[in-house]
Simulated scan of single mutants.
Amino acid sequence: MCAGCGAELTTPLSQVALPVHARQTYGNGAQLPVLMESGTFAVDPDPWGGPWRMWDEIDPGEAEARGIHAPVHALSDGTPGASVIAPGDVRGTRLIPEKRGGACCGLDGADGPNMACEACDLPVATRVDDCSLWQAVRLSPDAVHRVPVDGAHAAPLSWTELAKKGEKTPPFEPVATWGGRLGPDHYWSWSPRWEAAAGHALAHLLVASRGQPVNVPDGLTAAVFQRALDALLPAGPPKRRAVLAGPGQPSPDAGADILLVPVHPQTGRMWAPAGPAATAHLVPLPLGVWLWLVSPQPCLPVPASGRIPRDVLRDDPPPLPPGRLFRADRGTFQHTLVRQPAVRSPWLRTILENLTQGTPADLF
């Protein structure tokens, strides 16, 4: 509710984990969908938006206290703890036209809160829906208060339930772009969600590698990670072995050094093994991505009759995979890596510095 007048500003919401692609900037002119599922909210623990301070203006002790262990271009001085929701779950607000920001095709939030409470005009939230950004509304933590609602917070699903009922995230999907004279356009691509998930996991994989080569399972897992690991880590033995592990899967053997495990979509906690594998280094993956990796779903042709309308994206026969190798999301990778204490190691710091100097462009 509004901290100024107490007006209700959202529908009842249940808390979930913040998606790893929440800060992703994807492509150029892409129309990304809504970040959060309707009826849910997530808390962003990091500051977001302006004002900004350049790295040379920040004391190293302050940066470390904020969980930043390596140089970045700039840090937000915004208030941490924003509640992130779907735009359709907002109630009782209006847009502030003069707070449009430097957006291209929508709102980017660069000028700060751009939504005000209808009842008292207090700026309460920032709507983001510009091209290449995930659509969301960020409720300002100093202007909006959360209040408990009966029945809005269901008990988290068990890992067994998630393994059976969890929704898989396909690795390929159509990406919409802003339409030209002929209307909306699409292209078939690696999923932006997968690219962000890979950037997040790749940072953890590098930390888990301890500077040694890493092997991941063959197939799609290798297509997503192995090329980047081989390019960023030294060649030759000894090699650390990473395997997929999680609910409903065979127990990993004691020889596995790294486990690629799912993150609970409601609590944000990683699945953890018992027994000999409990000492392995855990690398997080979003549940939908992990489910697809452990049980890929084939693209089966579906019989159809009649003609498909001209403005419908065709799916017969199934579209071919994207015409390029997989690339992890650079921004998500960097955002994650600078928050790992291990990045202070010289070899990891070199990888981070090479992101802007010498890393091959086709890796990210």
Rank of each mutant, 00 (worst) to 15 (best):
P286N: 00
F172H: 15
P80G: 07
G151E: 06
F364M: 04
M115S: 12
R330G: 10
F326G: 08
A30E: 07
A22E: 11
D230V: 09
W55L: 02
E64F: 05
V312P: 05
A304L: 12
T126N: 13
V149S: 01
A198G: 09
T169P: 03
R330L: 15
L107S: 11
W178P: 03
P360V: 06
G331Q: 12
G61Q: 09
R91I: 12
Q31R: 09
E64I: 07
P71Q: 00
D56F: 03
W194Y: 02
R100M: 14
G179S: 10
G323K: 08
A70I: 05
G219I: 08
A74S: 13
I351L: 11
R339E: 07
L337Y: 03
V20G: 08
R349P: 05
R314D: 13
P237S: 10
P113L: 00
P341E: 06
E353A: 14
P148D: 04
L139S: 04
S158R: 12
D77Y: 13
G102W: 12
V84K: 05
A304S: 14
D142G: 07
G246S: 06
M270V: 01
P284D: 11
E37W: 09
L293T: 07
A280G: 03
D56T: 05
L18V: 11
K164M: 12
H145P: 12
I351Q: 04
L337N: 04
G236A: 01
P250V: 11
N28P: 11
G179V: 05
V20R: 06
D130L: 12
L355G: 13
A277Y: 04
L133E: 13
V16H: 00
D362A: 03
L291W: 03
C105Q: 14
P148F: 01
P60H: 09
G112H: 03
P234M: 06
G219V: 10
M115W: 04
L205D: 11
F41C: 05
L107D: 14
A361D: 09
G92T: 07
A328V: 06
D253C: 10
M36E: 07
D316A: 11
L220R: 15
P301H: 02
A203F: 10
G27R: 00
A254M: 10
A110G: 15
R240F: 00
H153R: 15
D315K: 08
Q24E: 08
R314V: 14
S132C: 12
D329F: 02
P296C: 04
P360G: 06
S189E: 14
I351N: 01
L139R: 02
V84R: 00
R344N: 12
Q249L: 15
P47R: 01
A280I: 06
R310I: 14
